[in-house]
Lab assay of single mutants.
Amino acid sequence: SEEELIEKAEKLRKEFEFIWNGIRFIIRENADEIRRFEELLKE
């Protein structure tokens, strides 16, 4: 039914948001290391 689809979509959206926030947190935490690594690659 349509309601089930909406519920599934909402659940997926929440899971995606949770994963995305996790990725963003990891990137933020490691931003300095990532930048340093990029500098090494440029040399």
Rank of each mutant, 00 (worst) to 15 (best):
R24P: 00
I23G: 01
R36D: 04
R13S: 05
E7T: 11
E4L: 06
F18C: 14
L41F: 10
I26E: 00
K42R: 10
E29F: 15
E43D: 08
L5R: 04
F25A: 13
K14S: 08
I19C: 13
N21E: 03
E33A: 13
K42N: 05
R35G: 03
D32G: 08
F18W: 13
D32H: 09
R28W: 13
R28K: 05
E39K: 12
L41V: 05
E29N: 07
K14T: 10
G22K: 14
E2Q: 08
E4S: 08
R35W: 11
E15R: 14
L12G: 02
I26W: 14
R28Q: 03
W20V: 02
F18G: 01
E39G: 02
A31E: 04
I26F: 13
A31Q: 03
I34S: 02
R13I: 11
A31R: 06
E33Y: 14
E3N: 08
N21M: 13
R36P: 02
S1P: 08
L40S: 02
E3D: 10
W20R: 00
I19M: 04
I34F: 07
E3F: 09
E7Q: 09
R36L: 10
I26D: 00
L12E: 03
L5E: 04
I6C: 13
S1F: 08
K14A: 07
R28A: 07
E4H: 05
I34V: 02
F18Q: 02
R24F: 13
E33L: 15
N21C: 14
N30F: 15
L12V: 06
I26V: 02
K42G: 07
I27N: 00
F16W: 13
A9E: 06
F37G: 02
D32W: 12
E15W: 15
L12P: 03
K11S: 08
R35N: 05
W20S: 00
E15T: 15
L41K: 01
S1K: 07
A31V: 07
L5S: 04
R35V: 11
D32M: 08
I19T: 02
K14I: 12
E2V: 12
L40H: 03
E43L: 11
E17H: 08
K42Y: 13
F18P: 00
I26C: 14
F25H: 02
F18S: 02
I6T: 08
L5V: 07
N21K: 09
G22Q: 13
K11M: 09
F18V: 07
F37A: 02
L12Y: 07
E4Y: 05
L5Y: 07
R24A: 05
E39V: 06
E10Y: 06
F16M: 05
R24C: 15
R35E: 04
I34H: 02
F25P: 00
D32P: 08
L5P: 03
F37M: 05
R35P: 02
F16D: 00
E2H: 09
R35S: 05
L41G: 01
N30R: 12
E7I: 12
N21F: 15
E15K: 14
E38V: 14
E33K: 11
R28F: 07
S1M: 11
E2R: 12
N21D: 02
I6M: 07
E29W: 15
E4C: 15
R24T: 03
R24N: 02
E3A: 10
N21L: 14
E39C: 14
F37V: 03
F25E: 04
W20C: 13
E2L: 12
E7Y: 07
I34E: 03
F37Q: 01
I27D: 00
E29Y: 14
R35A: 08
K8G: 06
E38C: 15
E15D: 06
E4V: 07
F16V: 04
E10Q: 10
A9F: 12
A31N: 04
A31L: 11
E2M: 13
I27G: 01
F25Y: 04
K14V: 11
I27R: 01
R28N: 05
K8M: 12
I23R: 00
D32T: 08
A31F: 11
K11I: 09
I26N: 00
F25G: 01
L5A: 07
R24Y: 08
L5F: 06
K8F: 11
E10T: 08
F25C: 12
R36N: 03
A9H: 08
E39W: 12
E2C: 15
R28L: 06
N30Q: 12
I6G: 03
E29T: 12
L40I: 07
K14N: 07
A9I: 13
R36S: 04
I6K: 06
K42F: 12
F16Q: 01
E38W: 14
L12D: 03
F25T: 04
R13D: 02
E7N: 11
F25Q: 05
N30V: 15
L41Q: 01
A31K: 03
I6Y: 07
E15S: 12
I26L: 09
I34L: 08
W20E: 00
N21Q: 09
E29K: 11
R13G: 05
I27K: 00
N30E: 04
D32R: 12
E3Y: 06
E4T: 08
K8Q: 10
K8E: 06
E3G: 08
L5G: 04
E15N: 08
K11W: 10
E15H: 13
E38I: 14
I23M: 02
N21W: 14
R28Y: 06
F18R: 10
S1W: 13
N21T: 09
E29D: 09
D32Y: 11
W20M: 01
K42C: 14
L5K: 07
I27L: 07
L41S: 02
D32E: 06
W20Y: 02
F37P: 01
R35D: 06
E10V: 08
N30G: 12
R35F: 09
R13F: 12
I27Q: 01
R13H: 09
L40E: 02
E7A: 11
A9K: 08
K11H: 05
E2N: 08
E2F: 12
N30T: 12
L41N: 01
E33T: 13
S1D: 09
K11A: 08
I27H: 00
E38R: 12
I6R: 10
I23A: 00
K11D: 06
K42E: 03
R28D: 05
S1H: 06
L40F: 08
E29H: 10
E29P: 05
E33I: 15
E17L: 13
I19Y: 04
E38P: 05
E39A: 09
K11P: 06
E43W: 13
L5Q: 05
E39H: 08
N30W: 15
F16Y: 04
I6W: 10
E3L: 09
L40N: 02
I6S: 07
R35K: 09
L5W: 12
F18K: 06
G22E: 04
R36A: 04
K8D: 07
E3V: 08
I27F: 10
L5M: 04
R28H: 04
E10N: 08
R24V: 07
E17A: 11
E4Q: 07
E10S: 09
K14G: 03
R24W: 13
E17D: 02
F18M: 05
F16R: 01
E3Q: 07
K42M: 10
R35Y: 07
D32N: 09
R35I: 06
A31W: 13
E10F: 05
R24I: 12
E10M: 11
R13N: 03
A9W: 14
I26S: 00
I6Q: 04
F18T: 02
I23H: 03
R24G: 02
E39D: 04
E17N: 04
G22Y: 15
F25R: 09
E38M: 14
G22V: 15
N30A: 14
R35L: 07
K14D: 03
E15L: 15
K14F: 13
I19Q: 00
L41E: 03
K11V: 03
E3M: 10
G22W: 15
I34M: 05
E33M: 14
F37D: 00
F16T: 01
G22I: 15
E43K: 07
I19G: 00
E7R: 11
R24S: 05
E4A: 11
G22P: 00
R28C: 15
K14C: 13
E15V: 15
E38S: 12
L40M: 07
D32L: 13
I27A: 02
E33F: 15
K11C: 15
K42V: 03
E2K: 11
F16L: 06
W20P: 00
K14M: 09
L5N: 05
E2P: 07
K8Y: 10
I19D: 00
R36F: 11
E38H: 12
K42I: 09
S1A: 09
R36W: 12
W20L: 05
I34R: 02
E39L: 10
I23N: 01
R13K: 06
E43T: 08
F16H: 01
I26M: 05
K8H: 10
D32S: 10
I26R: 01
N21R: 13
L40C: 14
E33D: 04
L41Y: 05
E38G: 09
W20D: 00
R28E: 05
E43R: 10
F37N: 01
K42H: 09
K14P: 04
K42A: 10
I23C: 14
L41W: 13
I34P: 01
I27E: 00
A31D: 04
D32C: 15
R24D: 01
